[in-house]
Amino acid sequence: MSERNISIDTYDKMDNLFGLECGAFIPSVNATIKMPGNQVLNLFNHFFEDGTRLRLREDNTTLYLRFCIFFNEGYSFKDLNFLVNEQENPFDVLCIRIQASCKKSKWCSAQKRISLSEISKTKEVEIEIPLSDTRDSISLSYYLTREIEAKRKTPKKASMPYSILSTGEDFKVLLDEVKDVGGNHFPIFPKTGMGDSLFRIEGLENSVIIPRIYYNDDFEEYFKRDDLLSVNSAFLTFSFYILDTYLRWLIFISSYDETDKEYRSFLDLYSGYCKESKNRISEIANMPKFSQEQTIEYFILSQKLFVGIQESKAINFKKELKGFIKEEFKLKSYESIQNIN
């Protein structure tokens, strides 16, 4: 056996046993902002009901994550017996540990240890987040762990302390605008003096600096919100053109090194949208620039992109359009009621 293959007995696990009801308490406004159902709370781009924007870093040095832990639907204390030996009582052997961490700055909170008797929708636990130690985002993770070594080893049951018996998807709190290219994020900024233009892409001639998207600064306050249907529809309209322009830049103009982080992010992004392997896209980008072969390959990729973005989860045209239609119908029926009145 080598050191790289530590023999760890497999044991029974049961993930997603627990749910968290979580919120971020912001001292400057003395308010708690609730975590939405998708488990991602965006504090960088949070607007209060009166339209004011949260100034997280400007007005606060600390924020507090407050949460209750409870059994997810369909699970109860009885299920914990499955995770321990027959003669053991889960209350004596197991506990829940919760920690917040920031991958970017490598900060990790103190671990909150919660006994099983404290599982309740009313018992609130708090973790302090020093903003100076964190960057971009923090993740809140929970683990059900075995706390003591088993007196007798039973096949398929964890025996060592700190064995993780259950965990679930992390909760994420976004603190800053993420500046890396990757996922569906591009460098986009407001600009004055754009006249009647809404969007422009500049810097396409530069082979080493990523082109920037500019939008008319008349729309700055609206484009920074993600709850406006009209803004969403504007971005949907332009999204294919923007992605296709960046694809053209990546293939015909850019001169990235294979090991470059941004280049790899682009490959990841287009590999996802075009459903094409990263190696293939890289091969196409490295063909002789503007050669017939490269141009044909670009057209094929562009077609795949057009279909791919419609089917992607990040930009789901069909779902968004249905949402718009539904909202428009609501508006129309409201208007007709108004007219009747």
């Binding site: 050191e3 790289r4 293959n5 530590i6 760890i8 540990r97 920690q99 990790c108 671990q111 683990y143 762990t145 060592m160 302390p161 700190y162 064995s163 993780i164």
Partner: peptide
């Protein structure tokens, strides 16, 4: 080097706050 390999190998255990003895 081996100690860090071992630590990283214990992915199924939450050793990030384990006691010194462990």
């Amino acid at each position: 080097a081996k100690a860090f390999v071992r630590y990283n190998g214990f992915k199924k255990r939450l050793l990030s706050s384990a006691v010194e003895q462990v």
